[in-house]
Design a protein around this nucleic acid. Structure first.
Lengths: 147, 147
DNA sequence: GTCAATGCAAATCGTTTGCATGAAC
DNA sequence: GTTCATGCAAACGATTTGCATTGAC
């Protein structure tokens, strides 16, 4: 739980520095994303709260508001699917990209230095500044190919 | 207009082979995406039709249905934005990827063989089959950085 | 004439917003 | 006590669906 405390401290600092107010809701949502090593969407986070934190009654609007805020201050990040909306994960130190199954939604994380470098080169060459280093490869995972 | 005829023939063949029916609407939508060298969303296509094909009165539902169909049979392809929805482009022979400005929506197409190869390697290593070879880099374009 | 495709309006899904209430400071 | 955050419900925008009508074959 040390990691946990650290990131909650970070949250508190950011909130204070922005003249905002620290709330239990924000902490719970951040903790879920940091602790569970999964990619979750707003609805899934809502369910987890109802199951694991039954004393909390967090509205779905608050979840969306909090997710937007946490992403803005870089404590979490999101990847978006064609239509299934967005999924979030707690930010770790290491940047990585995603391999996403378009059929079942399975996500594999990977990091490839060559691609990272090439990405930067291409962006620079075109006058772009990569803001979030986000890249996704869509395809079919083994299971879904077999169907 | 030769290119045009060719792709419309292709459309006709696909439609016939599937026991479906050829309609003017489907042809118009495909032609717009093939002729205009732009990335368009459903609403934009709708406007273009009202302006350039005033004799046609194509409902927005038909546009969505047609776009889904055309993408399924690989005559067009789409890229998706965070929330601004999806944009479509006519398929050319050469595959390419997209560099997308998250602020103004500007899109730059590029192709990098190294990345293509690495992508394939990574996908294969993880049991994935890349279905649509889609990759997007999000960032800020020159203009939007200057603001 | 049959069956698929269309246009329209209503429905749906994910997400956002307005507002009165409640909690943090 | 002031101000920000919350929960709720209503609003929203993009996309989909149900259904009667139209058009391709």
């Amino acid at each position: 739980m040390k990691n946990n405390d650290k990131i909650i401290d970070e949250l508190k600092n950011i909130i204070k520095s922005k003249g905002m107010k620290y709330t239990e809701q924000r902490a719970v949502i951040l903790q879920i994303l940091v602790n569970l090593d999964e990619h979750l969407n707003a609805e899934e986070i809502h369910s987890i709260i109802q199951k694991d934190y039954p004393e909390q009654n967090i509205g779905i609007a608050t979840i969306y508001r909090t997710l937007n805020f946490l992403e803005e201050v870089n404590l979490i990040s999101s990847i978006s699917f064609g239509k299934n909306g967005k999924k979030y994960e707690g930010n770790t130190d290491e940047h990585h990209d995603h391999l996403i199954c378009t059929s079942c939604g399975k996500i594999v994380e990977f990091l490839d230095d060559d691609i990272e470098k090439r990405q930067e080169d291409i962006a620079t060459k075109n006058g772009f500044k990569i803001t979030d280093h986000s890249m996704q490869i869509y395809g079919l995972c083994q299971n879904c190919q077999d169907k």
